[in-house]
Design a protein around this nucleic acid. Structure first.
Lengths: 231, 231
DNA sequence: ACCTGAACACCGTTCAAGT
DNA sequence: ACCTGAACACCGTTCAAGT
């Protein structure tokens, strides 16, 4: 049932998913659904959690650098949300469902491998978790207040044009940044912030542990590579 | 009209805001509303943008350290979203409405003052914008799939208990982190990630510009202070 | 234990008609 | 130019009744 809900959500979006339609697809009555799930919110939450499954399924390679592994995990989750744009806003923070819990645990385990002092492990872990889910939601959720027929590209072009027409006195930065907007890629946007965050993580570990250990994660640091190819 | 919509949203949440109810409060018919706004989505988007007003109203102090100013701006926006928990998910990215545009421009102007190389200004600016709105949404949105009557504290306690009962073999990190969850404060959660991000920003500027300028933002860096008192 | 499907109490949105 | 309010086409959810 959650599986067909996911299919419907992918096809028609959150508003398109209807208990009547879902019941029809499953060849039952609408009332039957309420025996398995207590309401629509719970159904969508379960669907969102299931979507996370593949991304958190693989155990992290214990030999791998913690920063690199964190980055790969984050990108896998982003790609999952990117394929199911309705999902990201529905994972709760702090998490309660299995795959979201597994994601948080994976992040935590990797953070533990860092030079970070132990008291900060939890705060840093949740910070990364919040970044992944929150920013993914912001990027992937299709909120097109103007014209629902236009795709993402048209939306960006349209927005760029609007920025162009702003008063440079009021918006000195934006009026000069329209070109950047036009050829901006959502995925790169996600990685830029992620790398800043991870770099901050590594740096703070270095700082907090005095100068001696500062080379530990620098050599093959996660922030210097170009990022994995899209899967 | 947007003002009363905000009041209703604060009072009853997004689902509680109804065109019938809003029309009643404004002493008009429901149809009248559609002359001023094209649908409910647009209304909520306008309301969310208006909520940002106070946070982006003040011009940034030109004498202030860029990192400190970025931090203060981010916290002001977070606090605005915290007071209107329905708002954060409704600011689009990239932004299109005035206050969200102003926010992005403010961030950009401050990033420009950084040691960051110019080609990266836009990417870093949007990364910070996405962090602020995305993580705020994740933290403030009230998604309580369990019991709508329980408040945030009860929700955390309940979640902590659930974590306690997980299998330590499957969730080695979480089962040891329940205490951290119980006394976690949402606002601190936001600042932790923000500081990591800003530290990463400063560090990357240092790195990219060779060693000479590396002291510039270090002295009174934004990441060393305790954070402004809640307003 | 699990399904049926009609019925209830709502929604957002439209539109002919008014001023 | 702006408002009215009945009407339309839906929803999520419930529940007596079935198997």
């Amino acid at each position: 049932m959650v599986g067909t809900a996911i299919a419907l959500l992918d096809e028609l979006g959150e508003r398109g998913l209807t208990f009547r339609l879902l019941a029809e697809r499953l060849q039952t009555g609408t009332g039957a659904l309420y025996w398995h799930v207590s309401n629509k919110d719970e159904l969508v939450a379960l669907a969102a959690d299931q979507v996370l499954g593949p991304a958190v399924a693989a155990d992290p390679d214990p030999a791998q650098n913690a920063g690199t592994a964190l980055r790969a995990l984050a990108m896998a989750v982003f790609d999952a949300f990117d394929q199911h744009p309705w999902a990201a806003p529905h994972v709760t923070a702090p998490p309660t469902l299995t795959n979201a819990l597994r994601l948080l645990d994976r992040i935590g385990t990797l953070v533990t491998r860092t030079e970070q002092p132990a008291e900060q492990h939890f705060a840093v872990t949740t910070a990364i978790f919040y970044y992944i889910t929150g920013v993914s939601a912001q990027i992937t959720v299709p909120r097109v207040p103007l014209d629902a027929t236009t795709g993402r590209d048209a939306y960006l072009a349209q927005t760029a044009e609007r920025w162009q027409n702003l008063d440079p006195a009021d918006y000195p930065f934006l009026t000069r940044a329209t070109d950047n907007l036009r050829d901006h890629a959502d995925r790169d946007q996600f990685t830029t912030g992620l790398d800043l965050l991870l770099r901050g993580l590594i740096t703070s570990a270095d700082t907090d542990r005095a100068a001696a250990g500062s080379h530990v994660l620098r050599g093959d640091s996660c922030v210097d590579q170009d990022g994995p190819p899209p899967q």
